[in-house]
């Protein structure tokens, strides 16, 4: 008998969608800051000014969202827990990881039956969290340069010295493209699992529910 499982709690979903919105906004405004593709006809306009304002505003929103999600890793259910992102620490997790990986690479027939993240996806999200944190730190390190000795510069200015201003920019820029690649992969995999698993993968991130046959677990 199929059962309805409440998998993705409200904070998980809110953080997910704030991340989606901020990543889109940050990519557009960030790309503009890197290579301004609009030229303002009047000096009285404030095109770059607004783009930078939006970039910094969404940067703060994104930071709060990522931080809240990390806090929820310790407060939420076991699907939201930090343990969910390191599935390969258990023998079962390793087995399922290989099974799932083989399915993706057309070398295995079966998908692992999971209530929450499959082990391959969970591992990818671990990497994505690392990239998020990298973007936040490198972003605020560069942002802090407007005010040497201020809060952000005092906290992260050492990174500018260590990595170098320009390399930090290049990396911040490059990671944006990695995240763009991830979004393509993420949406595709969501669609694929929605079709193959028939458990409401796609609707789950809106409603929080998934449809699971407990006998198959």
């Amino acid at each position: 008998m199929l059962k309805i499982y409440y998998v993705w709690e409200l904070p998980v979903r809110i953080c997910h969608w704030i991340n989606v919105l901020s990543m889109i906004m940050l990519s557009i405004t960030g790309f503009f800051i890197g290579s301004p593709f609009i030229t303002a006809p009047e000096t009285s306009m404030f095109v770059m000014g607004w783009m930078r304002f939006l970039h910094f505003a969404f940067a703060y929103l994104f930071t709060v969202s990522v931080a809240a999600r990390i806090v929820w890793m310790f407060l939420g259910n076991h699907h939201a827990s930090w343990r969910a992102f390191i599935p390969w620490i258990t023998a079962e997790g390793r087995r399922n990881f290989i099974k799932m990986f083989r399915y993706y690479t057309f070398t295995g027939k079966k998908i692992t039956y999971e209530v929450g993240h499959n082990p391959v996806a969970a591992t990818a999200y671990l990497g994505i969290f690392a990239l998020f944190i990298f973007q936040i730190i490198s972003g605020f390190a560069m942002y802090g340069q407007f005010d040497p000795g201020g809060f952000w510069n005092g906290l992260l200015g050492g990174i500018n010295v260590l990595v170098g201003n320009q390399w930090l920019r290049l990396l911040h820029h490059g990671v944006m493209w990695l995240l763009a690649g991830f979004i393509i992969n993420h949406v595709y995999s969501g669609w694929l699992m929605d079709v193959k698993m028939r458990n409401g993968t796609m609707s789950g991130i809106f409603s929080g529910y998934r449809y699971i046959e407990p006998e198959d677990l």
């Binding site: 694929l192 079709v195 028939r198």
Partner: peptide
């Protein structure tokens, strides 16, 4: 890459659940 993977996955038989 994922487009190709998707097309190939559509023709896959016997991997859908329930």
């Amino acid at each position: 890459a994922f487009g190709v993977h998707g097309v190939a996955s559509c023709f896959r038989k016997g991997d859908a659940m329930e």
